[in-house]
Amino acid sequence: MTQTLTAKDSKSTAKAVSRPKSGGHNAERLAYLFVLPALALVVVFRIIPLIWGLGYSFTDYDGMSAPRFVGLDNYIGIAHDPVFLDSLVNMLILLATLPIWIGLPLVLAILIHQGVPGGKLFRAVYFFPAVLSSVIVGAIFNVLLRYDGSFNLFLKAMGFSAVDWLGNSSTALFSLIAVQLWATFGMSLLIFIAGLSTVSAEMLEAAKLDGAKLLQTWWYIVIPSIRPIIEFAAVVTTIGMLTSMFGLIYVLTAGGPGTSTILPEFLIWLEQGKMNRPGYASAISMVLFLMMAGLAAIQIRIMSRNADI
């Protein structure tokens, strides 16, 4: 194919891509046409709506009458809204479990990397729930975690008493977190296994010859050598906690009982469904955006620091 193109005009190599300036106006104009669809989609459906939403958040717009500028009223409003505050508390509890979300797949990844019997099979099985929709996972666990469901049956067989995992406001959030962790830890597992494959075997052998214990080699050699990957996984997991819980909440608990499993992203959905105060919903959206922007800043810092090594 390359040859047929060159055969047409041997002088044409003078205009080759490696020589930026000589492409000519025509090529440059056409290059814009190639990025235009991508740029237009992103600008029309994400960036302009973001600015628009920011504007809404400073108005009393009710979906009908003309919006009026109200300054920070919506933000003051959400700061005093018990449902919003509950959603923030729930989010903080979720974020506090981050060490488990990293530690569990990390330990499993190291074990699989070190050749635990059946490692390949474990990897495939652990990752499997991650390809399923959170709707599927939520619908299944909604049945398994019922008072008369499989999980309580198992607990009773072990001599514990049954718990209404999803109907009780003190256990619903933890059930939601545990199900999401169960469903998605395979993703971090794969990321860690990929990272571990870059750790040099010689270094590990040398450590062993020095008589280092298994746990010592993990702590002093393996984990520091994949630190950038761990940081990456931590940021990706945190972003997931802020923006990938909707489907599971929607099907597993619908935010209840009460407000016990409402997270900000679900609250935005509830507010948008009411349709009568887009300004208020947008204010909550902007708080979520600020958290996303903060995470992105951390991610960029991690990436640029690792690029310096």
Binding site: F45, L50, Q272
Partner: peptide, 19 residues
């Protein structure tokens, strides 16, 4: 295009719906 990764649908739910 990359920065728009920071704008998940939840962040623009209302204006996106109106768009």
């Amino acid at each position: 295009i990359l920065v728009s990764l920071m704008i998940p649908v939840q962040v623009v739910l209302v204006p996106f719906y109106r768009t």
